[in-house]
Design a protein around this nucleic acid. Structure first.
Lengths: 201, 201
DNA sequence: CCGAAATATGACCACCCGGTCACCTCTGTA
DNA sequence: TACAGAGGTGACCGGGTGGTCATATTTCGG
């Protein structure tokens, strides 16, 4: 949490700080990002930064929050949409992709944040994972109750697969340019690898 | 590549260096790992290290190679085994799991290596990814030719999903203790999420 | 116009890093 | 024994880090 002083700042100054911090944290993971570079790039004194934030970590978590706030605005549309779980998933990744295109720096901040697994942010990471897990579990449970999803499957394993593929997709939005590819990846999840004995309509 | 001097060392000394380096690189990614700590932990002088290796990166890549060499010994069994692509995959992850249990430090070294995406080892990473991709592509092509795999799917998308899930599985071997879970995750890939109209045998 | 409180500053601190190099020791050969 | 070359060493270098603090400046109520 930034200190009150930060919010008392003229917006111009505040935004310069945010801009410089986003650029740095998009470029390097928390441990390797340099506070010194941030203050140099926004033209404020090092000491001033400590009037606004408790420490580097405080600034970082604030920036990560900002990034996720932006992202939520995009993906919320997907969950609001009518349709089966497959079209919701497709919409979700379409929106994530749009977010990555519109806000590449925020997108990189969120990606770098995930990578921290082993680092000093394990707790914050786990919190985010659980919250996303429960969102998805709700949708999945509903879909299974309606018989829309293969009942043989373990919901926990389904979440695991969804989470793994989603992470990889989002990680690679930079390379994956074709819309069609997203759909084809989701097809693999939907249809499964095993050959079907009976023809699908 | 270590210098010749390194291989001239008494095995005792050589292994002390390897042990200390493995411990450090298992604990922190390349950029954050500390050469200074390594030399302290194996009781040799900093300067000596530079008689054996060109630089930190050279030492690191040597250790990563060692780790993958160990791992190859495990997973080779899977590809040698008879059976359809699904049982090969299961065997592959079973062996990866066994490797993680038997050599937890090597396992962590390989995991940390993958995470480098944005860092200074992109080239080495990409090389490894391509080689694994071609191994898998061979198996997949054969399985599709035999009609064992759903022909509607895009092989590239199948590889993408396999790769994502495999990475996540291996990343989480520390938590995923139950054998059954591995099988259930692979079931999700095999059977797909979509409900089947006709009962499976 | 004054003084107190809030804010801004950058030199400075202790610490850590990868890498170097002049010097020392050891080993084997002539 | 003398000497050469290979190997070993750790003090040292330049550079970077996050964080602090005494001091200067600005703001603003009385």
């Amino acid at each position: 949490m930034p200190k009150q002083t930060f919010f008392n700042l003229e917006p111009e100054r505040r935004e310069a700080i945010i801009k410089a911090a986003v650029e740095e944290f998009a470029q390097a993971p928390f441990e390797q990002a340099s506070l010194t570079k941030i203050v140099e790039n926004c033209g404020i004194a090092k000491g001033s930064m400590y009037q606004y934030f408790k420490d580097k970590r405080d600034l970082y978590l604030y920036i990560v929050d900002l990034a996720y706030e932006q992202k939520r605005a995009y993906v919320a549309k997907a969950f609001a949409k009518e349709g089966d779980i497959f079209s919701v998933l497709e919409e979700y990744y379409q929106e994530s992709y749009a977010f990555a295109l519109d806000h590449p720096l925020f997108h990189q901040v969120t990606n770098k944040f995930w990578d921290n697994k082993g680092g000093s942010l394990r707790l914050e990471l786990e919190k985010g994972r659980l919250s996303r897990a429960s969102d998805f579990a709700q949708f999945l449970d509903a879909a299974m109750a309606e018989g829309k999803v293969n009942g043989e499957l373990d919901p926990e394993a389904v979440f695991f697969v969804y989470h793994a593929v989603g992470k990889e997709l989002i990680d690679n939005f930079d390379q994956v340019r074709s819309d069609g590819f997203l759909k084809r990846v989701l097809d693999v999840l939907r249809l499964g690898l095993a050959a079907r004995e009976e023809a699908e309509k």
